[in-house]
Design a binder for these strands. Structure first.
Length: 586
DNA sequence: CGGACAAGCTGA
DNA sequence: CAGCTTGTCCGG
């Protein structure tokens, strides 16, 4: 472009009649209002809806996304030109989805647009790979059925492989797959690639996804990946909590992916060995026949610790010691995280529990207090009346030493902070060990009750998820996979569900417990905290506000529509307000 | 959000 | 009344 042309470029604020005008959402969370800018002629071919740009605003330069093109700017506003094109951004339909998500999880639009944008600037797209044909063999009838429906929840036992489902979906057209972990996505991506299916693995291959791949796959944020001509959506292990963002806004990739499929009018399949109540409420359940599913769960040994030896408070039953001595690859799980200390009766060994809600209680000024419902009672055992309560607190470090001594084999310890997996056939760890190890002969839960009785409303579901993850490491009954569950609650539905390979038992019990108490998914909840929380919740209308407890409030509404409406109706006071919709840990 | 500008507080 | 803090407004 010569100096002559440059001189004819519009001056700031001048605006030629035929200049295009772009409406831009700026990347300033506090600024909800979009601003209009001129599209300079030399950038014309690079500016589309979704493009990432830099624009002048109030004397500085900010990032933003082109929301709309050729808009009618408000009168009497001198438009400035877009300063720079940063690169490709979210596809137009993802803007609507981001707006929906911002409302659903009471977050800001730019937050979701950032998630839907490439991790590094993308200036051009690679050529789309040519799809010859997807090598899909005979499709499993259940998987085929799932893909014929608008939305289905496919209960795949722990040892089942989701790969054929992904392949069958890919035969329909471009498929979005959301996996619970990047490693899972990576593994599936390489299998697909070996089969000749063009794959984009997110987040790295954002540009490849935008150019058009047959399968776009990744963990949580991949729910926002570009997928031109989307034909199917799959969410693997929908029950996994990692699908939900921990920081506020606490959006869930399962829900985003499902909404995306609904908007695109394409089939959405959620898979899980033990579906969440949320998913059961969302779509139709498809499950293998009882005997098939049962066989795909491992052999389960239940050690009833109360019956075996009521006086024992240690964690090493003879069965466990035998297992550890057997020379097999054994993973022992002991979740020592959580500040709560468990109290056990010194006479009968029973755990001290709340007489109202059944959760474990803590000693507080010589009385027992329930952390869930705040009920108090005298410090005596409910089973035998003894007032001799002992604190039971065991960590993986201690368990490792004990096991090594008892079994006479080297034992390694694995927690969330462990870097390299210890080179030992027997491992003891927190639940992190179940993510770090992918194969074992047996998994033993040293103290399943610490999970079952955790003072959280989702405790049973969360425990079932852990058991399912353990079941995946050891495989089905045919391969000899074993789970050892040490518990004082052998009739608990989680124990029975594992024993019978029947996760519906947990769902039924959970539903019966939560519905009368008004817990999700029968209601919609938000946890509101931070300095301005008091002022904010006081102004909420049409919802139930509970609290404060520890400086935080719980907001409850009959459904998410009502909750989102109420949360959006009140302007946010200045300061750090945290709103966590669908809190998992209450 | 962050700059601009206006209204209020302090000090000599 | 300068010089500074604090508050409110607004951006294209």
């Amino acid at each position: 472009m010569g100096a002559h042309d440059a001189a004819r470029r519009p001056q700031v604020g001048a605006g030629h009649l035929n200049d295009r005008v772009a409406r831009v959402v700026v990347d300033e969370p506090a600024l909800e209002k979009p601003f209009d800018y001129l599209v300079p002629e030399h950038l014309g071919d690079q500016v589309r809806v979704g493009t990432l740009v830099r624009v002048p605003l109030h004397g500085r330069r900010v990032g933003g996304w082109v929301r709309e093109l050729d808009v009618e700017p408000p009168a009497r506003v001198a438009l400035k030109p877009i300063a720079k094109v940063t690169g490709w951004g979210p596809a137009p339909e993802l803007f609507d989805l981001a707006e929906w998500a911002a409302r659903r999880w009471a977050g800001r639009l730019p937050h979701f647009l950032r998630t839907a944008s490439p991790p590094a600037a993308v200036h051009g797209l690679p050529p789309a790979e040519v799809v010859t044909d997807v090598p899909v063999g005979p499709v499993d009838p259940l998987m085929g059925e799932a893909l014929r429906r608008e939305r289905s929840l496919l209960r795949l036992p722990p040892s089942a492989d989701a790969y054929p489902l992904v392949l069958a979906a890919a035969a329909l057209g471009p498929t979005l797959v959301v996996a619970p972990a990047h490693a899972t996505a990576q593994l599936l991506a390489s299998r697909l690639r070996r089969a000749g299916v063009p794959v984009a693995l997110l987040p790295r291959e954002w540009a490849r996804a935008a150019a058009g791949a047959r399968v776009v796959i990744g963990a949580r944020a991949a729910a926002w990946a570009p997928v031109p001509d989307l034909a199917a959506v799959i969410v693997l292990d929908e029950h996994e909590e990692v699908h939900q963002e921990e920081a506020s806004p606490t959006w869930n990739a399962r829900d985003v992916a499902a909404e995306r499929a609904r908007r695109a009018g394409v089939p959405c399949v959620l898979t899980s060995p033990s579906p969440s109540l949320e998913a059961l409420a969302w779509g139709e359940l498809l499950a293998p026949d009882r005997s098939t599913e049962r066989a795909a769960w491992p052999i389960v040994d239940v050690v009833d610790r109360a019956r075996e030896d009521p006086l024992r408070t240690d964690l090493y039953s003879p069965k466990l010691v035998d297992l550890v001595r057997s020379g097999k690859r054994v993973v022992c799980v002991l979740n020592r995280k959580g500040r709560a200390r468990l109290l056990a009766c010194g006479s009968c060994g029973d755990l001290a529990r709340c007489d109202r809600c059944g959760l474990t209680v803590a000693m507080d000024d010589d009385v027992l207090q329930c952390r869930a419902c705040a009920a108090t009672r005298p410090a005596v055992c409910l089973s035998c009346g003894s007032s001799k309560l002992k604190v039971r607190r065991l960590g993986t470090t201690r368990a490792r030493e004990d096991l090594e001594r008892l079994a006479g084999v080297p034992v390694g310890e694995v927690t969330g902070d462990t870097d390299a997996l210890p080179d030992a056939s027997v491992l003891v760890g927190t639940e992190a060990v179940l993510r770090r190890v992918d194969q074992a002969d047996a998994v033993a839960f040293l103290d399943l009750d610490a999970e079952l009785l955790a003072p959280r409303y989702r405790a049973a579901e969360q425990t079932m998820a852990l058991v399912a993850r353990a079941a995946r490491l050891v495989g089905g009954k045919a391969g000899g996979g074993r789970l050892l569950l040490q518990t004082r609650l052998p009739r608990h539905e989680v124990v029975l569900a594992a024993l019978h390979g029947d996760p519906a038992r947990v769902a039924a019990a959970e539903a019966a417990r939560r519905e009368p108490l008004g817990w999700p998914p029968y209601t919609a909840m938000a946890h509101v905290s931070g300095a301005p929380a008091a002022e904010y919740v006081a102004a909420l209308q049409g919802v139930q506000v509970m609290g404060p407890a520890d400086g935080a409030w719980l907001v409850r509404a009959p459904d998410h529509e009502v909750l989102a409406h109420a949360l959006a109706a009140v302007p946010r006071p200045p300061g750090r307000l945290r709103v966590a919709v669908d809190p998992l840990r209450l």
